[in-house]
C-alpha cells in the first residue's frame, strides 16, 4: 500500500486530507509540525508527503531541506499545500526540492493528479 505523510498544524486540515487520501487507498500518517514529521520520516520514509508551510517548531521549508538531506530523502514525492497569498513560498519550496504544489482547499482529484504528475504510480488496485 502506498503511504502518505500529512504535515499540518491544523487538526481540521489533517482530518480532511486523511479522508481524501484514504479514499485514494493511501496508508496515512500525520504530523503537526516539521520536527514531528522528520521523526516519522527517520522511522520510515513515506511514498508521499502533503506539506503545509506555516507551522510552529519547524516550518515546511525547514522540513523539506532536512528531508532531502536524509539518506533516501530524495525519494518521497513532496507536495506543498499553499494558498494564493504565498507565491514566494511556492518558489522557495520548488527550489528546495518540492515536487509539486496545490492550493487549499484541495480535493481528491487534484491530489491524485498532482501525485501522478510528480511520478507516483497509481496504487488503487494494488
Amino acid at each position: 500500500m502506498r503511504t502518505c505523510l500529512i504535515v499540518d498544524d491544523s487538526r481540521v486540515i489533517r482530518r480532511v486530507a486523511r479522508r481524501i487520501l484514504e479514499a485514494l487507498d493511501f496508508q496515512v500518517e500525520e504530523a503537526s509540525d516539521g520536527a514531528e514529521a522528520m521523526a516519522l520520516c527517520r522511522d520510515r520514509l513515506p511514498d508521499a508527503v502533503l506539506l503545509d508551510w506555516n507551522m510552529p517548531v519547524m516550518d515546511g521549508l525547514e522540513f523539506l531541506h532536512a528531508l532531502r538531506r536524509e539518506p533516501g530523502g530524495e525519494r518521497p514525492i513532496v507536495v506543498l499545500c499553499t494558498t494564493r497569498n504565498e507565491p514566494e513560498h511556492i518558489a522557495a519550496a520548488l527550489a528546495a526540492g518540492a515536487n509539486e504544489y496545490i492550493m487549499k482547499p484541495f480535493d481528491g482529484d487534484i491530489i491524485e493528479a498532482k501525485f501522478a504528475e510528480a511520478g507516483l504510480p497509481f496504487g488503487r488496485t494494488a
Binding site: S10, V12, I13, T83, K104, P105
Partner: peptide
C-alpha cells in the same frame, strides 16, 4: 499569521466562505 492562515485554510475546506474571506 499562522493562526489566521490555519483559520483561513480550514474554513475553506468546510466551505465557510465568510470566515474564509475575513481571515483571508
Amino acid at each position: 499569521f499562522r493562526c489566521l492562515h490555519t483559520v483561513k485554510s480550514a474554513s475553506g475546506f468546510l466551505h465557510l466562505h465568510r470566515i474564509e474571506a475575513l481571515a483571508d
